[in-house]
């Protein structure tokens, strides 16, 4: 698979040279492949937000490089805006960035900055609104009249409207109710499937990551702890738990069963997969 983004020996130090100096990212190395859905998980303060702000050049590496399609994004600092249009970043709690009089205008802010006008702009805005499940009559409302969850959708649409090749989402579902979470994740999954764009999802919820992504990157205190497919990562469930992280509920059940002596493989993360294993065990005549 071809990498679209490569992070090479990335280090970022906040407040360098003062008593408050600290590295939030240290010597990280990984790649994001074209068209994949990558999940990033890690403890509070492990450097997730700091890391992803490098991907579109909002933060400049203290050391190391970010390559977008093989080209260092800081090669021409003047052209960093182009990078930001290609790598769309949706911040943690993005609803606080809304500022326009109407939802429509707010979503149009990004594409307008790209130089889009007329029909193309209108199309981009309506398409993005549709993708996140906003109704047409909501487009003419003031963003400040909407509920928190709806605001979040508007903010997401504001980035989607730029049609970035890579969409980076920082905890998009934080603070939403379970139905809202699932709904938003479904929108994101659809976008990934229908448009074939690359997605990087930062999340606190192992279950959310397990259900959606192709590959997982686990961060721990500014370093990459593991990376691999969900099976590979959850096979090291014990290690994740020692690192103070969670595993999906299903994996936890499988691990507990294994501890009690059942021959199950703990590297499962969907209910179906565990069920299948258990059914097989029952057929095999083992006590369940």
């Amino acid at each position: 698979m071809k990498p679209i983004l490569e992070v090479k020996h990335l280090t970022h130090t906040y407040s360098a040279g003062t008593p408050f100096q600290r590295s939030a990212v240290e010597d990280m190395d990984f790649a994001v492949n074209e068209g994949e859905f990558l999940g990033i998980i890690g403890h509070t303060g492990s450097g997730k937000s700091t890391l992803i702000q490098h991907l579109n050049g909002l933060l400049k590496p203290t050391e190391g490089q970010i390559l977008l399609r093989g080209k260092d994004i800081w090669e021409e600092p003047k052209k960093i805006r182009e990078v930001r249009f290609k790598v769309g970043l949706v911040f943690q709690y993005p609803e606080y960035q809304l500022f326009e009089e109407t939802v429509y205008k707010d979503i149009a802010y990004g594409p307008t900055n790209m130089g889009m006008t007329g029909d193309a702009l209108d199309h981009a805005v309506r398409e993005a609104a549709r993708l996140v499940g906003l109704r047409d009559d909501q487009l003419e409302k003031s963003p400040f009249e909407l509920s928190g969850g709806q605001k979040r959708r508007v903010a997401l649409a504001g980035v989607l409207a730029m049609e970035p090749d890579v969409l980076v989402l920082d905890e998009p579902t934080a603070g939403l109710d379970p139905a809202g979470r699932e709904n938003l994740m479904a929108n994101i999954r659809d976008y990934h499937r229908n448009k074939g764009k690359t997605i990087v999802l930062v999340s606190h919820s192992m279950d959310e990551i397990a259900q959606n992504v192709d590959r997982i990157l686990v961060l721990k205190s500014a370093h990459v702890l593991m990376q691999g497919t969900p099976e590979e990562v959850f096979a090291r469930g014990e290690e994740l738990i020692t690192a103070g992280l969670d595993v999906p509920q299903v994996t936890r059940i499988a691990m507990a069963l294994q501890r009690r002596g059942l021959p199950v493989d703990p590297a499962v993360y969907t209910v179906e997969a565990l069920e299948q294993q258990l059914q097989q065990l029952r057929k095999g005549g083992t006590v369940c």
């Binding site: 579109n56 769309g88 911040f91 960035q97 990004g110 730029m162």
Partner: peptide, 11 residues
């Protein structure tokens, strides 16, 4: 934070 968010949208 807000400046960063708007820069991400090309401000």
């Amino acid at each position: 934070k807000i400046m960063s968010a708007q820069k991400a949208r090309g401000a």
